[in-house]
Design a protein around this nucleic acid. Sequence first.
RNA 1: GCGAGAGUGGCGGAACUGGCAGACGCGCAGGACUUAGGAUCCUGUGGGGCAACCCGUCCGGGUUCGACUCCCGGCUUUCGCACCA
Length: 839
Amino acid sequence: MTESLPVDTPGAPEGFEPAGYEPGAVERKWRERWAARAANQPDIAGAKRPFYALMMFPYPSAEGLHVGNLFAFTGNDIYARFQRLQGFDVFQPIGFDAFGIHSENHALKAGLHPMELIPANIANFTRQLERAGLMVDWSRVIDTTHPSYYKWTQWVFLKLLERGLAFKKKAAVNWCPNDKTVLANEQVENGRCERCGALVEQRLLEQWFFRITDYSERLLDGIDGLDWSHTTTTAQRSWIGRSEGAEIRFKVLNPLEDAGSAAVHVTAEVGSGAHEIKVFTTRPDTIFGATYVVVAPEHPLLDAITSYEQRAAVAEYRTVAARQDLIARKTNKEKSGVFTGSYAVNPATGDMMPVWTSDYVLMDYGTGAIMAVPGHDERDFEFATKFGLPIERVVVARDGSARAPLSEAYVDDADGGVLCNSEQFNGTPVGEAKRILTDWLESKHAAKGVVNYRLHDWCISRQRYWGPPIPVIYCDACGMVPVPEKDLPVLLPNIPDFKPDDSGVSPLARHEEWYRVPCPKCGKSARRETDVSDTFLDSGWYFLRYPSVGLDDVPFDPALTKKWLPVNSYIGGNEHAVLHLMYSRFLTMVLHEAGYVDFDEPFTKFRAHGMIIRDGAKMSKSKGNVVNPDDYFDGWGADTFRTYLMFLGPFEEGGDFRDGGISGVRSFLGRLWISARGSHTNGEPELDVMRKLHQTIRKVGEDIPKLSYNTAIAAMMEYLNTVRRGERTAHRAEVEPLVQLVAPFAPHIAEELWESFGHVKSVFDSGWPAFDSALVTQSTATIAVQVGGKTRGTVTVSPDAVEADVFAAAMADPAIAKFITGTPKKVIFVPKRLLNVVL
RNA sequence: GCGAGAGUGGCGGAACUGGCAGACGCGCAGGACUUAGGAUCCUGUGGGGCAACCCGUCCGGGUUCGACUCCCGGCUUUCGCACCA
């Protein structure tokens, strides 16, 4: 794979024979030089112009660095180095997100202990990352599994506990029988564990939760002020899932002995309404069309409202639903359900509506109960059709008939519909009707307008070993007692048998010597919490820690935090668009309220990078299309590999990795080397070349902040082609600034060439070259001449030529003039660009 | 199903606010230097046609002097979310 370049350079000055470009040697030299000079360590306490360039820290897998990681890190590094060249004190830290089920499972499989596996993985990652030539401050690395870090993760937990934002509740949770662990809803995909693919079961366990739902509104509103990738903010908004509607209360009649008989047609006056079912609906306007009510199988009132006759059927249905819950329930859309034997009163019509239970109503969302409007909801329509429940039309297109039968749910709630069969509200447009009907129901004390969110509380409990123990102690006398801050960290013990079992309790519970502790309050024997916390808690605050790494008495120093945060630029994958970024925002808001930080949004700017695919598919071991960065570092050098990755396609979209293109980038650097090493200082640089240079300086300076790296590289290639056109030798002044432009992409070769020009200081302390706006302007303009919109040729004129000049020039060219027959009806002139003659 | 993107040469991809479509690179072809070249350098390269020219940015309409770009309708595709009431 290694290739040699010619030793002699055409036109090289007498007695100077540049050695061929050998990336291996050059890169080694500069890695060592940077380390020796601590070149990548900003003055954390004293920086004048701090710039925090953060990238999402990796999970240090045993397989080593993935090109996807490298792609992301390189993209961040280029931006960071560019900011450094702009004169900022750039802080680009890195760390390792090494707790969690992934590491633990891998350790189990490999027969190793995570406490041995993880340091080895981190060492390997570090070695690979160092070769990439990242401008990373290696003196401030975070390892989430180190007690000096998770001490403060536990501290964060205690802060939430203090503020009432951490709480325990028994909850139906997703249990993966294979990984033997609880999964967050987000970790379940189509009823299967996102990691191992096993079918997920439902279990009832006591879990720790963070009350993120208290922040739904703030998390949503805050998005407006963020400079984030559009795709990311869209994902956040839809994850929060705000919807406006009404909560409507339905009185339920006591189950009547004869309920269920066909003759039942009770009036509103009958029954005492001992129970009330609350439903959430976004369509209060359709209340007149509500013909039945459905509660989720887990609904707390279900038992109370079920009639004697229906009890067996309901109980059986509920058992089946519980068993299949996340499996069939979310994938099998065939409607099923059972009548409870009770009736609810429609507050608008006074009609009796049968109450059913069905798994198409989710306990998780809204109130766990719905009013069914089969005429105007597809799911309700399907259900009503299947079970023979009445379907009423209460919305009709403006020109439609209120009697028109419904063959499917009419769901147009935008502008088309007006109410019908709704008494005094007939004719009201749907839009207004939502508000009017809510007000009306409110006046009858049957409803209130509410806002509902899809966002759920964050379950942070994991019944596993490889995580930070949740710092709580249970005492028979004192109850739940938080571990005092002075006792942090609660160390994760090094135990050999960390394998989870089927009990649903963490392996830590098997170690009495660990979990038996004196109560911090009364001193009597007590027990530790044996759950560990979610890795998203580790990564939810790590950006706060970086500037304060090494300070053991605080999680993050106030002065340093004020200086460096919020993060100026954050780059990462869109796979974390929702959870990691949402949790980080949430924790920041809480810490802000608690007075620990003076900002409430952690990441001012966020950009999601694209994904690198190969042969049109995601890289994976099973497909055998994984790229090992080491091979490319060895074969081509880090500078070539970095630049190539950035040249593949737009950074925010990713690209298709193929070996084919890499040689183009390598020969670009090779030619740069030759032109720079062979450059002369005789006389003046060529004016046309200098024009192109200054245009290139401008272009690259505009492209990098936009992360438009591929076009920046293309511009530099184009410029180098101009410099070398016709085998000409470069003037020093023509290539020296190019070395600065290339530096963020290919830092090693840039340093080497910069040094060869006689500079003592690093190229990264040389500042970004300024462009001369006089030179950027073209000396001539090539103007397209169109006749009737069709391009018929071009004319070259002065850039400030006016319409008449260009028209004259066009007429002087017979190839163009022959199309201009007769008097032009109209002439469109765009200076410096185009002349269009309309006949 | 809903939401957000994306469809441009043989390939990866450029194209500012509606103004010469195909920058840059790969590949390919020809040439130079060479004992040789898979190294390096130069030239060419959307399709058709001898040419003048014609046709070309997923498809069909539209707006405009002019559309890859804007509007309407459709197709394909990627990524989220998904019985969210």
